[in-house]
Design a protein around this nucleic acid. Structure first.
Length: 601
RNA sequence: GGGCCGUUAGCUCAGUCGGUAGAGCAACUGGCUUUUAACCAGUGGGUCGCAGGUUCGAGUCCCGCACGGCUCACCA
C-alpha cells in the first residue's frame, strides 16, 4: 500500500510504528464509537467543553500569578471532585508529558482542553475484544494529535488545574501526520487556506494565544453566529426565507460575468447565478411581501482580498417600501445583529474603530465626489471646482480626462527638480496643472460624439470610485446613482436622471447595495433593451433581457425596496480579517503546481 | 502582466566578509509518580527550490527558471 499523501520521514515512520504496536496491544485501533459520561447533563453526553465549563469554577485560584493555590483549598476542591467519575474523549492537544511513572496530557474537543493524568500503577486500557490491557503501555505509544477516550475521576493538581485521573484509556484514532507546531501554528497562510483542517487543528492546539486575535475556529463560529442573527432579525420582522435556482438559463440580476455549465439531459447551457434578484422579485409579484434568501452567488471574475468566485449574499425585498426606508431598516438591522454577535456596537478593524450605534452618514454620489475631490486640484486653470460641474456632461468628461492624465504621469512637473525654490515649484506646478486642465477640456470637446446620459453616468461612477471610494471608511450610504448604471432600479421622482439606489460602504468596501425596485414592465423592457445594446457593443457584463421576468412584472408588482448584503465582507469587519479568504472555509485558490515531486514513488 | 519580497532538517527560523550546515520544537534512547512551552542527558535527521556561471572554494556573489506571498492594474 502506498500512501503518497503521507510523506515518508522519521516523524511519520514513528507514528506508523506506534500504530502497529497499538493494534497489537488493543486490537482495532479505529473503533466505531466511544460513549461519554452524562455527569453535566443526564440528557446528553459530556464534552470536554461542558466538563470544563461546569467544574472549572470549583478549581481553587492561586493568590497571585504563577503561585500555587493553598493546599487546604486544593483538598477542599478534591473532596467535591474526586467522587465524580467522567468519561471524556478528544484529540491529544500536546505530546504526552511523561515523567517516569506518571504522565500528563491535554485533550481537546476543538474548543476547550482538559488535562488527563495517567499513572503507571493504576491505568488500564481496553482491548476491543473486551480484555483488559496495560494502560501505561498504551500511553507510551500515543502521539500528539491522536484521539483517545479516558475514564477516571476529577481532581485538581497541586498547581490548581482541573484534571481527570485516568483509570481506563481507550484508543480511538491515529494521527499519522505530525501536528502543526504547537507554538507557531501554521505560519504559511497558503497552507492554512488549502488545508483548513490543519489550520483549525493548529488553532485548537496552539498554546500561545497572546496576540489577542481570534482563532480560525472562533472566526467561523462568529460567522455562524452572524448568519443566525441575520436570519433571526428578518424572521422577527415577518420575512420568509426562500431558495431560488442556483442554475438558470440566463445569468441576470447583477452586472457580472457568469460561470457557464451544461445540462446533459436537456442539452442546454446553464449559468451559475450572479444574483437571485429577479427570482425574488417574481416572488414579490406572487404575494411574498417580505422575502429573503441567504445563499451563494457566483461571479466569474478576478480573485482578490475582497473577491471570491463564490460568495454569500443576503438579499431581501420589502413591499411598499422605498430605498430610503430600506436604508433605515438596514441600519437598524446591522446595529442589532452586530451588537448580538460582538456584544457591542463597537468594532475594531485594523487601525479603524467603528461604532455601529451611531447614525450612518448619507451622501449622494455627486456630493461624495465633490467632497473628496483632491484639494490640490480645487483650482484648475483659473477655474474653481464646483460640484455643479457634475451635472454638465462636458465638464464630467473633462474631469475624467484630467484625472486620467494625473494618474498616468508622476504629476508632470509637480515633482519639482533639484535646486528650484518652493515658490518656483508651486509656479511650475500651477502651469502644469493649467496645461493639463486645458488639454483635458480640449479632449472632452474633441471627443466628438455628443455626451449621452450613459457615458456621463459611467464617468460619474468612475469619478466616485477613484476620488471618493478610498475615503469611505466609516459606515456611509452613497445614494442617487446614475440611472443608466442601475437597470433594475426605479428613477427618483424628483430627478429622472438618477436612480433611487444606494450602496453602503464600510472600511472602503462595498458591503450592501439596494434600491427602489423598478416595477413598471414597459420601462424595465426599455432598460433591458439598453443593456442589450451595451452587450452588442462588447460589454460582457451587461444584463440580458429576461422576458419571463417582464411577464411577471406585467402581472403587477407592488412598490418595493430590495437590498443585497455581502455577508463575507461583513464577517471580515466583525472578525478583523482583511482577506475574504480568511472568512471562507474553503476559498478558491489557484491550482497547486507540482513544484516538488518526492511523492512519486 | 508590472513592482517588491521569499524558498535552508518533519515544523518555526538563524547563517557575519565567499572558507567543515546551526538553534528551538518535533522524532528516537535513557532518567524522573502532580507536570503544564515540563525538565535533565544522549542519538539520528540536509541535493540549502531547480539549473547554469564566477571562484582554489558558493547556502552566501551573478544570470535564468520554477513555486509562493504582498502590491498595482481588472473586478462586488
Amino acid at each position: 500500500m502506498s500512501m503518497t499523501f503521507i510523506e515518508d520521514n522519521d516523524q511519520t515512520r514513528a507514528r506508523r510504528e506506534h500504530l502497529a504496536a497499538i493494534t497489537a496491544l488493543v486490537g482495532n485501533a479505529y473503533p466505531n464509537k466511544f460513549a461519554c459520561s452524562r455527569v453535566v447533563n443526564p440528557d446528553r453526553e459530556d464534552t470536554i467543553t461542558a466538563i470544563v465549563k461546569k467544574f472549572l469554577p470549583l478549581a481553587p485560584q492561586a493568590a497571585e500569578e504563577g503561585a500555587r493555590p493553598a493546599p487546604e483549598e486544593i483538598e477542599r476542591a478534591n473532596a467535591m471532585l474526586n467522587p465524580l467519575t467522567v468519561r471524556v474523549c478528544g484529540r491529544l492537544a500536546v505530546p504526552p508529558r511523561v515523567m517516569g511513572k506518571a504522565a500528563f496530557v491535554h485533550l481537546s474537543d476543538g474548543v476547550s482542553r482538559l488535562q488527563i493524568y495517567v499513572r503507571r500503577d493504576d491505568a488500564t486500557a481496553r482491548h476491543t475484544d473486551g480484555r483488559e490491557a496495560d494502560g501505561w503501555e498504551l500511553l507510551q505509544l500515543l502521539d500528539h494529535g491522536d484521539f483517545v477516550g479516558a475514564e477516571g475521576f476529577l481532581f485538581v493538581t497541586k498547581t490548581g488545574e482541573l484534571s481527570v485521573h485516568v483509570r481506563e484509556l481507550t484508543f480511538l484514532a491515529k494521527a499519522l501526520l505530525p501536528m502543526p507546531d504547537k507554538m507557531h501554528g501554521i505560519s504559511d497562510p497558503e497552507i492554512g487556506r488549502r488545508q483548513r483542517y490543519a489550520d483549525l487543528i493548529a488553532g485548537s492546539l496552539k498554546i500561545d494565544h497572546s496576540d489577542g486575535e481570534l482563532t480560525t475556529r472562533e472566526v467561523f463560529a462568529r460567522r455562524s453566529k452572524l448568519i443566525t442573527e441575520l436570519r433571526r432579525f428578518l424572521d422577527e420582522h415577518d420575512y420568509v426565507e426562500v431558495e431560488t435556482p442556483m442554475l438558470s438559463p440566463i445569468a441576470t440580476g447583477a452586472v457580472a460575468k457568469p460561470f457557464k455549465t451544461h445540462h446533459n439531459a436537456l442539452d442546454i447551457d446553464l449559468y451559475a447565478r450572479v444574483a437571485p434578484e429577479l427570482y425574488l422579485k417574481r416572488l414579490v409579484v406572487g404575494g411574498f411581501e417580505r422575502v429573503y434568501e441567504l445563499n451563494r452567488n457566483f461571479r466569474n471574475e478576478g480573485l482578490s482580498a475582497r473577491h471570491n468566485p463564490e460568495f454569500t449574499m443576503l438579499e431581501f425585498y420589502c413591499a411598499y417600501m422605498d430605498a430610503v426606508g430600506m436604508m433605515d431598516f438596514c441600519e437598524v438591522m446591522l446595529r442589532a445583529t452586530i451588537e448580538r454577535v460582538n456584544g457591542a456596537t463597537h468594532v475594531r478593524f485594523g487601525g479603524h474603530a467603528f461604532d455601529f450605534g451611531r447614525a450612518f452618514e448619507r451622501l449622494t454620489m455627486r456630493q461624495a465626489v465633490a467632497k473628496y475631490w483632491p484639494l490640490q486640484f480645487r483650482e484648475m486653470g483659473g477655474e474653481r471646482f464646483d460640484d455643479g460641474w457634475l451635472l454638465d456632461a462636458l465638464r464630467v468628461r473633462q474631469l475624467v480626462a484630467f484625472l486620467d492624465e494625473q494618474k498616468q504621469g508622476p504629476m508632470g512637473a509637480t515633482a519639482g527638480a533639484g535646486y528650484s525654490s518652493a515658490a518656483e515649484d508651486t509656479l511650475k506646478a500651477n502651469f502644469a496643472l493649467a496645461d493639463a486642465w486645458q488639454r483635458a477640456g480640449a479632449a472632452a470637446v474633441d471627443n466628438g460624439a455628443p455626451a449621452d446620459a450613459e457615458e456621463t453616468a459611467r464617468h460619474i461612477a468612475r469619478l466616485f470610485e477613484e476620488v471618493a471610494e478610498p475615503h469611505l471608511t466609516q459606515p456611509i450610504f452613497i445614494t442617487n446613482f446614475p440611472k443608466p448604471i442601475s437597470p433594475l432600479a426605479k428613477a427618483s421622482p424628483v430627478d429622472p436622471s438618477i436612480a433611487e439606489r444606494f450602496e453602503l460602504y464600510i472600511a472602503g468596501m462595498e458591503v450592501a447595495n439596494g434600491f427602489s425596485e423598478l416595477n413598471d414592465p414597459a420601462e424595465q423592457y426599455e432598460r433591458f433593451a439598453e443593456q442589450g445594446r451595451a452587450r452588442e457593443r462588447g460589454d460582457e457584463e451587461a444584463m440580458q433581457m429576461d422576458e419571463d421576468y417582464l411577464r411577471a412584472l406585467a402581472y403587477g408588482m407592488p412598490p418595493a425596496a430590495g437590498i443585497g448584503i455581502g455577508v463575507d465582507r461583513l464577517v471580515m469587519l466583525l472578525t478583523n480579517r482583511h482577506s475574504i479568504r480568511d472568512v471562507i472555509l474553503f476559498p478558491h485558490m489557484r491550482p497547486q503546481r507540482p513544484a516538488e515531486n518526492h511523492a512519486a514513488e
